[in-house]
Design a protein around this nucleic acid. Structure first.
Lengths: 214, 214
DNA sequence: TTCTTCATGTAATTAGTTACATGATTGA
DNA sequence: TCAATCATGTAACTAATTACATGAAGAA
């Protein structure tokens, strides 16, 4: 039953929020759903556990606020030790972007499926992006209007926000490109042949990346 | 000690490979490192477990090949039931692209760090992409030359390959853009202000996605 | 006053990772 | 014949998820 007393990336993410201001766990859940979720998705129950660990490690302290008759809520605040730990973590190297993309898996194995499988997966991907992009767009407009929460963090958020926007744009553009390719396939994906011109283009793009355009 | 008898996405991914040809676990590990890893990263030990589950469910059968004096190796082949299960899974809707991006987290919380934190994270991201792109480029060239394994899967692999290429291109381009923005920041990230013109551009991109360019 | 939604958590389970162990093969 | 690397796994552990439970507040 080891409570797991060592800091994970998720722990530091929570600590990062506490460095902005004190939060109740519920507020943290809301906030994470608003932004962090996109680049570090974790279940709600985890967000209830982590702050306890931070307290045990001396990185945060909790203030109990009684609420109603028989419920209490805990508001967590970062400690000086917590700030030092966070700063140390920030200066260590972090991991690169990792993807998990089930729909692409299904496309990858479509030789056991049908052309329809592929086309409908591509359509679903575009719908998914459209959906996710909604919130992102709304948030972007808030910042543009200077109406967003934490205006002092606007410049910082701008970087991450643009990453998501670029990501969504890339995914839709790719899905559209792929749909165009697949449309010309025969019904059986196993009979489909490589599009030579498209492959040359792909290699050129990869070469540009390798060259490291200045 | 429940062996976990239900199929996960990872199980289906392995099953997808078995549908191409029979594999030993070691070969599977190699193959996964070559391609699947990018869109569905899993530890090696998992790849040794999953095939056993497939056998228990009747989706695969194992042939033991003795090797040396006291070692055996198991080669797994898909069964007709396995093919049906795979086809059924392929026709179900799948999940959209999920990201986990620790370096971006560190950028996100850089108000507890320094401008240097951000710039070096961005540099690390570019290095990461350069690295990952190497293999991708090599693979793309193989297909172009018609030299890749599983030529009958070339058209299919082209779709996934291009996704990765586009992703890497997007990440480097973003990192470069972000570096340009951050360079003009004051030393303390908390003093940095939103780049209004850049934000307008971000919103325009998001609006294009929302409109669903034809 | 009752229903619904907001809010606050805990328990049980599992998917996945890290670490370890060792046989087989190859080449110096 | 020894060292290095390739190959084949198992065991222990933990991070994370799913499911459950219920109090408080607001609306009808």
């Amino acid at each position: 039953m080891s409570t797991g007393k060592s800091m994970t990336t998720t722990s530091y993410a929570i600590l990062g929020y506490l460095a902005i201001k004190p939060w109740t766990t519920y507020e943290l859940v809301q906030q994470v759903n608003l932004s962090l979720r996109r680049v570090w998705p974790r279940a709600q129950s985890k967000l209830y556990e982590e702050p306890k660990k931070l307290v045990a490690l001396g990185y945060a302290r909790a203030v109990e606020e009684p609420i109603g008759k028989r419920r209490r809520r805990r508001r967590y605040a970062i400690t000086p030790r917590g700030r030092r730990a966070l700063a140390a973590w920030l200066s260590e190297p972090g991991g690169g972007p990792q993807l998990e993309f089930e729909q692409l898996l299904k496309i990858h194995f479509a030789d056991s499926g049908s052309k329809e499988t592929v086309l409908s997966a591509l359509a679903a991907i575009r719908d998914w992006v459209r959906e996710e992009n909604q919130e992102n767009l709304a948030m972007g407009r808030l910042y543009l209007a200077g109406q967003a929460a934490f205006p002092q963090r606007a410049a910082l958020n701008q970087l991450g926000g643009r990453f998501l926007t670029d990501f969504y744009a890339m995914v839709t553009d790719w899905a559209e490109w792929a749909s165009g390719i697949v449309k010309d396939w025969p019904d059986d994906p196993r009979q489909a042949v490589l599009d030579q011109a498209a492959q040359e283009e792909s290699v050129r793009i990869a070469e540009r990346i390798a060259a490291g355009s200045t």
